[in-house]
Structures are given as C-alpha cells and as structure tokens.
Amino acid sequence: MINRDAILKRISGIDDKIFLSKVIDKALKAQNSHCITSTDFLDPYQSNIIKKSIGDNSGVNCVFYGGYTGAEREIAIFCPQGMSISDFHTYEYPLKVIEVKWKSRISLTHRDFLGSLMGLGIKREKIGDILLEDDICRIIVISEIAEYLEYNLLKVGNANVEVTLTDVGEIQPQDRNFKEIKVSVASLRLDCIASSGFGISRSKIGEFIKGDKVSLNWEKISSLTKQVSEGDTISIRGKGRVIVDKIGAMTKKGRISITLLKYL
C-alpha cells in the first residue's frame, strides 16, 4: 500500500515534495477507486522522482507514456495492483497529436511553436514532445486542450498555420542527431565536462552554474565540482544538452578520455 508520509519523508526539496504529493493523490485514487489515473506531462527529472519514490508500489502499477517509443516528456499512468492498462479495454490514452502545417519556405523552430502555444495560455505541463520536420510539426498534448488548439492556433512565428488532430500511436520513434565529441579532461567535474561539451570556457560555465542555468539529469546544480558519471545528461538553458556517452581510460598525461554526444 502507498504510504504518503514515508514517501515524502525521503524527499528533501520543498518543490519536489509539493510535486510528488500531487502525484501520490493520483496514485491513491487508482489504488482506492480501482480506476486508471494519469498525470500531466513530466520532464525526465520528474519522471525519475516518481520512479524512485513510487514506482511499481505494492498498491499500484505505474507506466510512463509520451505518445511514442522514446518520448522525452511523458505522463505517468497509474492502475490498480494486479492489473495493467491492457486490462481496461475501453481505456484511451489522454493524449492527442496536433499536426501543424505551413508554407515550407518559412523556417520555424521549436521555440517558435512553444512560444505560440504558451502565448495562448497553455501551461507547459500540458505539452509533450514537439517533433519538427521541414514543413510539418507534430505536437503531443493532453487531450483536453487539443480542440482548443485546433481552432485557436492560427499563427506560429511569422507563419500562418493549419492545424489538424490525430491520435497517438501513429508516430514513429525519432532518430536523434548528435555530434560526437572525443576529448580528454583533467577531471570529471561538472564545469570541466560542460566546458568541453559546449565549447565554452570554464569561467563562463561557472557563471551559468551560479545563475541556475545548468542542469545535470534535469536537476539544477549549483556546484561547479559536482562529479559527472557515464550516461549523465548536462543541459544549459539556451545552449542545448550533452550526454556523457563514455568515460574511458587515463591518458599517459594523467587526463581522462571521454566521449560526449551533443544534441544537434
């Protein structure tokens, strides 16, 4: 059974406690009412909090879904103990896809789409992944806002757009484009790794860290000396993100060989 007090006791940050308390309410409803419940969209950091704190608790099963395999932003779905979503034959994922088209000669970015959505009063947690191609953008959203966007999203950036709705399940896994960066570093400190990955001086990285612009595995980090591990993701607001793909052997000069993958 879910023990709210025991779960929250293990969480230190007040914001994380507030967030997790709301999620526990969803899980308890599934447990006690024998129904399926779900959250809004979560970023990977929030998903990790749920996995570590609740996971497949003895009173509820939890799965994550973002509209397609490999989605970054997902919802958490809770169903009663001993059952899975497939047992609820009438269950429909509370997600829709809005397909946005415009004249191909106009170049639009992810930021353009996100800005237009939020300009309509849509909260970030109602928006999942934004999948942008040459002349079409597929945006996964919570179903309750889909129809509103169909009729009110008329312009993105400087482009007039047309919006249609489709169901999830038709989106294929997305290929991620990376630039491979092989370097040797003096240490596995966050500022050192980030400097190599983003091509920015360590002093500037230090300013970003102190300005709360740097996240490690989607958690804001304030320490320059935080140690980085293989598989970690480093994000800098407005600069993108880098994955620590491989930590290799020590070189003859006492430096550490690493391979980074920078999102393009």
Rank of each mutant, 00 (worst) to 15 (best):
Asn3Glu: 11
Asn3Asp: 14
Arg4Tyr: 09
Leu8Thr: 11
Lys9Cys: 06
Gly13Asn: 14
Lys17Trp: 01
Ser21Gln: 13
Lys22Pro: 00
Lys29Arg: 15
Ala30Gly: 13
His34Ser: 15
Ser38Ala: 13
Leu42Gln: 09
Ile49Phe: 00
Lys51Glu: 13
Lys52Leu: 12
Ser53Cys: 11
Ile54Ser: 05
Tyr65Glu: 02
Tyr68Asp: 06
Phe78Leu: 06
Pro80Lys: 08
Met83Asp: 11
Ser86Val: 10
Tyr91Leu: 03
Pro94Lys: 08
Glu99Phe: 00
Lys101His: 06
Lys101Tyr: 03
Lys101Cys: 07
Ser104Lys: 14
Leu117Trp: 05
Leu117Pro: 03
Leu120His: 02
Gly121Pro: 02
Ile122Asn: 07
Arg124Phe: 05
Ile127Glu: 10
Asp129Glu: 09
Asp134Thr: 14
Asp135Arg: 01
Ile139Arg: 03
Tyr151Thr: 04
Glu162Gly: 01
Val168Arg: 00
Gly169Val: 04
Glu170Tyr: 04
Ile171Ser: 01
Lys182Arg: 14
Ala186Gly: 11
Cys192Ala: 11
Ile200Met: 07
Arg202Leu: 06
Lys204Met: 13
Asp212Pro: 00
Ser222Val: 09
Val228Glu: 04
Ile236Gln: 04
Val244Ala: 08
Asp245Gly: 01
Lys246Phe: 11
Met250Thr: 15
Thr251Arg: 06
Lys253Leu: 00
Ser257Gln: 14
Ile258Val: 15
Leu261Val: 09
